[in-house]
């Protein structure tokens, strides 16, 4: 999961049909892989916030961000540096679990700050919301017990207060 080419792009977009296709289309046109994507309405129902994690070199990313900024439905866009951002991600995982291992798994999950949200005779479903790195750790540990199904949401992020990163477009223009 840790990859030096991972960049977080946060965009405020109009909440309309087709907007996601326009955004995704710009990535596809340049052959970039979207690593994760999270979209939901904001407090203003006309707007949604999109958080995109993309695997790309910085110079190429600037070009995509500039192009995204040209989309009429994109109201605001910025690249978030992980240092200047608060990031969270949600993980749901169903893990195979014999009676003997049950308390061991519960212990690990609780220690990392997760929760058991469902259980039956031979499996547990675990929920955890945390930083992507902590979720990586949990996923790795759960793997040794046998993950039956897993879904991660992809990260959502907001700039840290007082650290409001400048938009990439703006910083580009300050070259002069």
């Amino acid at each position: 999961m840790k990859n030096s080419n991972h960049h977080i792009v946060s965009a405020l977009v109009e909440n309309r049909s087709g907007v996601l296709a326009r955004i995704a289309g710009l990535f596809a046109r340049r052959g970039f892989n979207i690593y994760s994507l999270a979209v939901a309405p904001t407090d203003d129902s006309k707007l949604s916030r999109v958080t995109i994690v993309v695997d790309v070199e910085t110079s190429l990313l600037n070009q995509v961000v500039n192009q995204l900024n040209k989309l009429i439905n994109v109201v605001e866009i910025q690249e978030l540096s992980p240092l200047d951002a608060v990031e969270r991600e949600l993980l749901l995982a169903t893990v195979q679990c014999s009676t003997g291992k049950r308390s061991e798994i519960i212990q690990i999950v609780t220690a990392l700050g997760g929760e058991i949200v469902d259980a039956d005779i031979s499996s547990l479903t675990i929920e955890m919301s945390s930083t992507p790195e902590k979720l990586d750790t949990l996923e790795e540990l759960l793997n040794s017990y046998g993950i039956l199904k897993i879904q991660r949401t992809g990260r959502v992020a907001l700039p840290r207060l007082g650290y409001l990163a400048e938009t990439v477009a703006d910083s580009e223009l300050k070259l002069a």
Binding site: Q63, N66, Q67, N69, K70, A169, E172, L173, L175, A176
Partner: peptide
């Protein structure tokens, strides 16, 4: 007039946007 053209191919020394 198009910010996406700036630095797309060649990095400029001065930008007149």
């Amino acid at each position: 007039v198009d910010p996406a053209e700036i630095g797309k191919v060649r990095k400029p020394d001065v930008v007149l946007l």
